[in-house]
Amino acid sequence: MSVRVQSEPFDFGAECAGFGQGGKNVGAVVTFLGVVRDDSGTLNRMEIEHYPGMTEKAIAAMVNEARNRWSLADILVIHRHGSLKPGEPIMMVATAARHRVAAFEAAEFLMDYLKSRAPFWKKEVAADGAEWVAATDNDEIALKRW
């Protein structure tokens, strides 16, 4: 189990290579990569602010909850903060389990919780101004299924 909160880029391929494999009890690995999206075509950068200390605690609590709910061989969560360019990786989640249902469900659970319960705030900076990304009702609805 590993959680990393960092400003540095990460290499998704290198992180995935070998993750959760090699153990006799692992039959499924699910990985998710979130990247900076530029809907308007004018995005200069995305600035991600976080709450040092609480961020790590909140993610650790989510990872523990996932381990309680599903039988998982391994979990990896990486989330960046700082200034990111369009197309750059923001965050990733990887889960390893005996069967794919547990790996998929745990990855979705972690994604839903990271979205609205980990203290990160995204600001989109474009040529014509900067705007904080607003949370949506769907973010809260997504939590209800868990």
Binding site: G34, I90, S116, A118, W121, W132, A134, A135, D139
Partner: peptide, 10 residues
């Protein structure tokens, strides 16, 4: 004590 808007991680 910390005050902030709803979080937008992920």
């Amino acid at each position: 004590v910390a005050f902030f808007p709803p979080m937008t991680g992920g």
